[in-house]
Write a protein that binds this DNA or RNA. Structure first.
Lengths: 338, 338
DNA sequence: CCTGGCACTCTCGGCGGCTGAGTGCCAGCA
DNA sequence: TGCTGGCACTCAGCCGCCGAGAGTGCCAGG
């Protein structure tokens, strides 16, 4: 177990390094953080911290920088979540108000988060998995061609073309539309399959092929489109990443373009509250020098999706966590209102 | 007017520089491009080209690199469009087939283009301005709450909530839906306002408030959502940009995040065919060291949107132009089919 | 257990010299 | 008139060297 003072030294190192981006030595440490002990003492503590793997030296004659493990300890034990200032809060609200549709909400959120944290922002679209059906619409575009429109309670709209095996009459279509809606509206996606299973039975044999096609498309949409989408912004902030550029930034940009990677990343953060994954904890080559701060957000009590920030492991954790949490709350409110 | 050989020298310089990324001198030029003259002669030609502003030297004792003006001449007079190989064509087709909806088409196109050109790809969503209405749907979500769904012939779907001043009956709604569709389906967006203007007159005074609200929302959607959206991909390719990193890449990333800038860029390319804007021709600070190759694409004979590539001025123009053109064609086909 | 002192290490920046690529110019030749 | 070979010149990049400074580890003393 580390003594109180050693933890204090670690905190000082993290804070200093995050601020200056330079390895921090024992002397400046005592000066800048008015520790009540001498540099020599701090050196001993640093040696101990290095022994335990919390900090490391880039070269023999340089100061120390925190390791992933050091940041971990810092985040878990030493750092709080820094609340935003009230001007910042107002700015958030102003910025998010006035969004016209879901795309707009997500778009604004991404820009906002990127600007607040000066890092890369990632916002997942509200997930369909936990959503309920608000409405299903069937439109006849041609005698044997339908369009299925699915509207969710989160305001998302999905549409699909359906080529029918046989033409379908207007009245039959109206009937189908009515029956379909009476069964699935307000239901969760996961419930839908069992609810519509026996629908074809109520129709003439002639139309059953078409009905089945419609149902198949509906179910497919529910399943397929449950695969999440997300929006990314603030990649220009990567340029403030560090010194040895191409090597640092490249894999990160590549990872960011692989939505699968990001979704996995967000998905793995099981904690519905805030999750911080530091460096190698991301289990991804390209993201081994980045940290991801993410949190669930939702319109009600339940989280429907995640949002977060990707930045260098050397980031201002308290500030970033504060911004992420605040934005998630406001977005939740906006979604609840609409 | 430049002599034939001098143009040939310029072409050789451009090709070499694009390949090697290094200033090219007279000696290697004669060797690699088996010009039938001596280095000394080439030196004279180079001096002339520099005099005219087509090439420049980074330092006194270095080779020459093309200027924006040099690239311009190269693109206009010296370079053709390099057609893709047939494996590449097949790859395009395979990659684009199987897209399920518009988002998917655009997403695949962006990835494809980025991969093909190894540069940043930009794809504009099919514009609504030239589109026609395929269907308008009105859904009663609550007694005094409607959802308007607009479906375009390009497969795009827009939805809007409408809060009604007064509840509206089911039959009135059906009537409105029918009248609305009979008037606007198949019409261009620009025609719609005049076509629906007198619609409220056909209804009871009680319902006119609601009807007006619906129409207002419809027109608003047509206008507002005419503002274009676009998708970007392949930003990781920026890391192969050049040497002096942060300064080069940063403004480009920033410009790419400003959709307004990009839309303006694509919009300014009036030529429905291929447009190449080189360096400062972009009239944008951050993009002064990039070139933009763009082309319109569309489902029929008419271009409904643009797509293109953003890369360093030092890019393989013939190859890039070939890829951009080919992708645009295939996307057009895909859109026409759906 | 803390502290001051001391010797040691290693990075970084500046300086000088060398090398090589590339140039411009000139005189000669077709 | 236009091409060519020759030649002197320039300058960026590289290497090696050195000194300064920052930071460390260790030790002996309070």
């Amino acid at each position: 177990m580390l003594s109180e003072r050693r933890l204090e030294v670690l905190r000082a190192i993290v804070q200093d390094y995050v601020g200056t981006e330079e390895p921090v030595g024992s002397k400046v440490l005592t000066e800048r953080h008015n520790l009540k002990v001498s540099p020599a003492t701090v050196r001993n503590d640093m040696a101990a911290l290095e022994e335990e793997g919390y900090i490391a030296q880039p070269h023999t004659s340089a100061g120390r920088i925190p390791t992933d493990k050091g940041y971990r300890l810092f985040v878990d034990k030493l750092a709080g979540v820094k609340p935003l200032s009230s001007p910042e809060r107002r700015a958030i609200q102003n910025f998010l108000d006035g969004a016209v549709d879901l795309d707009d909400v997500v778009g604004r959120t991404v820009r906002l988060l990127a600007q607040l944290t000066r890092q890369v922002a990632v916002v997942q679209y509200p997930s369909l998995t936990r959503s309920t059906v608000r409405h299903v619409e069937l439109l006849a575009l041609a005698p044997a061609r339908l369009m299925l429109v699915l509207i969710t309670d989160t305001g998302r709209v999905e549409q699909r073309m359906i080529d029918c095996p046989a033409p379908i009459g207007e009245t039959v279509l109206a009937d189908l539309r009515a029956r379909l809606n009476s069964r699935v509206v307000g239901q969760r996606f996961t419930e839908v399959p069992s609810l519509v299973q026996d629908l074809p039975d109520a129709f003439d044999a002639d139309d059953r092929g078409t009905i089945s096609a419609v149902l198949a498309t509906l179910l497919e949409t529910l399943v397929e489109e449950t695969e999440e989408r997300l929006m990314i912004g603030g990649t220009a902030n990567l340029t403030r990443f560090g010194h040895d550029f191409p090597l640092t930034i490249r894999p990160v940009l590549e990872a960011l373009e692989e939505q699968v990677v990001l979704l996995k990343l967000l998905g793995e953060a099981k904690d519905p509250g805030m999750t911080v994954r530091i460096g190698h904890e991301n289990n991804h080559e390209g993201l081994s020098s980045t940290s991801v701060v993410s949190v669930g957000y939702g319109s009600g009590d339940e989280a429907v999706a995640k949002l977060g920030v990707v930045g260098p492991t050397r980031m201002d954790y308290p500030g970033t966590m504060g911004a992420v949490r605040a934005v998630a709350r406001y977005v939740g409110q906006i979604l609840a209102e609409s």
